[in-house]
Simulated scan of single mutants.
Amino acid sequence: MKSITITDVAKHAGVSKKTVSRVINQEANVRAQTRNKVQESIKLLGFKRNPLGMALARNRSFFIALLSDNPSPGYLMNLQKGILQSCTEQQMGLFVYDCSYRSQSLAKEIEELVENTLVDGLILTPPICDKIELLQMLDANNINYIKIGPKNVKSGECIGFNGTQSSYDMTNYLMELGHKDIAFILGHPDQDSSRRSEMGFRKALGEAKREINESHIVQGFYTYQSGIDAATVLLNQTPRPTAIFAANDEMAVGVLYKVQSLGLRVPDDISICGIDDISISTKVWPHITTMRQPLVTIGYQAASMLIERLKTKDSGLPAKGQDDARITDGELVIRDSTKKQPS
């Protein structure tokens, strides 16, 4: 059976092949009446576009790539879920590329990735999104990209999370429960999200005129093991903190393990909380109180912004402003790992 081509659709609808192509690619510069006529012909003829043929014709892959160097698998999984949802809706493919932020050859490595795969655009996660040499290479080669969680939200299109406010709100919640000795586990020092969370923690204590015990602020690395290590330090202190706030849920679960391994009860002896609301926070007991970061939504928006930019480029229309930043807020999710202190 003969395959239906764009030529067949154009002839059936009484329009040019270029018009059919514009409709297929969901370009805006087509009259509604014409678009409806073409879509009806596509449906009646059973036309199926050939992704390989389109890719070869345009020197494109119809794939975008997600670049990551993040120690929290739950964080990446939720981001990827949102990105895949947008890609599926827009008939795009997705590469997930694991790389090293600290690599001296990262920019060259990504340049070769783009050349070898013809990937159409990139989504950069922290801390990769702040790698100056990489950003300079991408700009020099006119490679489209979107940043998630960069230090500077005013430098290009990006999606950010209000980590300072989220940490501030969580710290205030713990103080409302009556906690006076609150410890904080920092995130990875390479990631600006750690600095923002620390700022929120310090701001809340400062506004409450609480003295900040610097020994209660311990370095973590956004990993389960670093949560255990940080908790080991904190639980050996006098006074022992009554609440431990970790900068992500992976570390909070590590804290939970360490606390319970010492025979202490959560939340009766120590309250524990985190940030992100990844699936692991409800796969342990007690379930972890957390500040929900809408990672699926963030991933979806990042992919949609990138794909929209690619469509604009294809259409030949002027590009929209390059400083479109969207900041999402957190949501306090109260579960069983936190408890009001006795008066």
Rank of each mutant, 00 (worst) to 15 (best):
T34S: 02
R35A: 00
L44D: 07
L45C: 09
G46M: 09
K48L: 11
K48E: 12
K48Y: 07
R49V: 03
P51V: 14
P51D: 11
P51S: 11
L52A: 09
A55R: 07
A57K: 14
R58N: 14
N59H: 13
R60D: 01
F62M: 13
F62G: 00
F63Q: 05
D69E: 10
D69M: 09
N70D: 11
P71R: 02
Y75H: 09
N78D: 14
Q80M: 14
K81P: 00
I83A: 02
L84W: 00
T88A: 10
Q91R: 09
M92Y: 15
G93A: 04
L94Y: 06
V96L: 15
V96A: 06
S100C: 09
Y101A: 12
R102H: 08
S103D: 15
S103E: 13
Q104M: 07
Q104S: 15
A107E: 10
I110E: 01
E115A: 14
N116T: 10
V119W: 12
V119I: 08
D120P: 07
G121F: 09
G121C: 05
T125G: 03
T125E: 04
P126L: 07
P126S: 13
I128H: 06
C129D: 05
K131H: 15
E133K: 13
E133W: 02
E133Q: 15
E133V: 05
